[in-house]
Design a binder for these strands. Sequence first.
DNA 1: GTATTTATTATGATATATCAATTATATTTA
DNA 2: TAAATATAATTGATATATCATAATAAATAC
Lengths: 145, 145
Amino acid sequence: MTMPLKTVFYTIEKTIKEYRKFSQRNLIKIEKHITVDQALVLNILKEQPGLSQKEIAGLLYKDVAAMTRMIEGMVKKGMLKKLPYPEDKRRSLIQPTDKGEAILEKIIPVVLKNRKLALEGLTEEEVHTLNALLNKILTNLNRNS
Amino acid sequence: MTMPLKTVFYTIEKTIKEYRKFSQRNLIKIEKHITVDQALVLNILKEQPGLSQKEIAGLLYKDVAAMTRMIEGMVKKGMLKKLPYPEDKRRSLIQPTDKGEAILEKIIPVVLKNRKLALEGLTEEEVHTLNALLNKILTNLNRNS
DNA sequence: GTATTTATTATGATATATCAATTATATTTA
DNA sequence: TAAATATAATTGATATATCATAATAAATAC
């Protein structure tokens, strides 16, 4: 087996892990006790209110069980609230609390800056190319599974 | 904040997660109870015998504590053995057992095929470009951290 | 309209990750 | 060489992930 560490998959994994660590470090500077994923949940709920836990899980690429527990944790920490969802009693209406919204406002600029710093020196076309190549791989994976 | 789900970082994360799942599914078909990371450890130790746990952790991009437990698990399952490491008593010499080697031989073709399927339709140049673009991001992350 | 199937969420068991603190050994330095 | 510092690995506490199963509600089939 040629060294797995020299494959492009290793580079992909390394990049996303470094990016997550980088983002996490910068997030914590301005808001202790928040994780990258929690920030994403707050943002998603702000932009698409009324999503189900399953839908949020899908967007964050997580398991629904993991999402149950993550949201539970965020409710405990006062960032989210769960209200009854009239049309479907299996679900809840999940909303950021005032505290959650305040946190989100604080972290948005950090998230934007993180992305900007990480993509420094890449042209729009390069970012587009990167996306396109990754999508080719994704297509292969879906076709073969 | 523009939707995080539309950023290239989301695509990167999605790609590596899908690739891991894809690999895991195919691995399990021929060898129950082995994970992608365990396969990588076996392979690394075969190609670079005598690495320390810390070095292996670095290559797999994991914490040393996680590596301690992972290796512990693989020893319990009979895939690895830990021998005394003469020059430095803090370390152990970690080696695949016969069973571990046999497993590795079985899975190598699967790993190679996984990679091939995932990269189907991409030219060598495209793979090279993908790598280069990711490395640009990695450089940014390192410089800014 | 009841029974069956499907969908959403929650839970239990287990595995893995992360961070801090600890232990044992090596290395440096004064 | 003794003391201080650094390194490799382990452990404990906590968080998160994953898979199977269960509980509840909704949708569909009969």
